[in-house]
Amino acid sequence: MTPVIPLSWYLLLAAALFSIGLYGALARRNAIGVLMGIELILNAVNINLVAFNRYIVPQQVSGQIFAIFVLAIAAAEAAVGLALIIAIYRSRATVNLDEIDLLKG
């Protein structure tokens, strides 16, 4: 089946997701909230990759492969990040970033 939906629709959606994710990552006080924003950005990236793959180089799978790697890395990153968040919660009972201020910038 040849694609019927214009490529730019996907790209616009990804751009919107990216912007929303970025907003979340920048605006959230809570470390887990930031992490969620990051995951949204990564999803936007993957939509881009898959869409470009499908529309620009449909005979290859390079974009999908890239997306799979992004997926895997996101998992690893989330695991480590959440481990850190749990560790810090244990020692301070908060994961609000403005309360994590032992080291003054």
Binding site: S19, L22, Y23, L26, A27, R29, N30, G33, L97
Partner: peptide, 16 residues
């Protein structure tokens, strides 16, 4: 406590 930090306003503008 609010879920967003002080820079949420700017972040929103940036994102938009």
């Amino acid at each position: 406590a609010p879920m967003n930090n002080f820079q949420s306003g700017i972040s929103a503008v940036v994102a938009v």
